[in-house]
Amino acid sequence: MTHEIICAGFGGQGVMLIGQIIAYGGMIEGKSVSWFPSYGPEMRGGTANCSVVVSEKQVGSPIVSEPDGIIAMNRPSLEKFTMAVKPGGTIVYNSSLIEITPDRSGVKILPVPANDIAAELGNDKVANMVALGAYLGLTKVISPTSVEAALKKVLPSRRHKLIPLNIQALQKGLELAKN
């Protein structure tokens, strides 16, 4: 099975990081993975995204154009990728910042008030982890335990004290997906 994801948002919302966490988590689970950042002059202030592929077999194209799912942290990202999602795919979007609902049928859609939940936890920066939790709850691409292991790899050791907070945020997202 191959799962292709696009994570997108403003620079600073941590979309590259959650993409890396999925890729690392997949690697830890023994799968083939790739992570590819959107790349070009638009990276300087504006919308950024990354393509992640997690697969049982050798990864082909690292650039995803028909994703199985997207995590959209801001409105331009949601608008850009809504129609690209494969039928039966998944859209998780940050309803704290996005006031529209995606106009798309045939896919699972979950609004996640990611910034509000993160603020309740005391740190706005973990909004990305709330969205990731919701996405993983719906798709099960990687297990929550792999996320914890991946965080240790992705974050520099001076940031490891933030791992419990990140896991808390992830759990909130997972709970949202259950309901």
């Binding site: 790739s34 950042p37 690292p62």
Partner: peptide, 10 residues
């Protein structure tokens, strides 16, 4: 090329 250079893989 840019893809091979920017892409992360294990």
């Amino acid at each position: 090329d840019a893809i091979m250079g920017q892409m992360m893989e294990p």
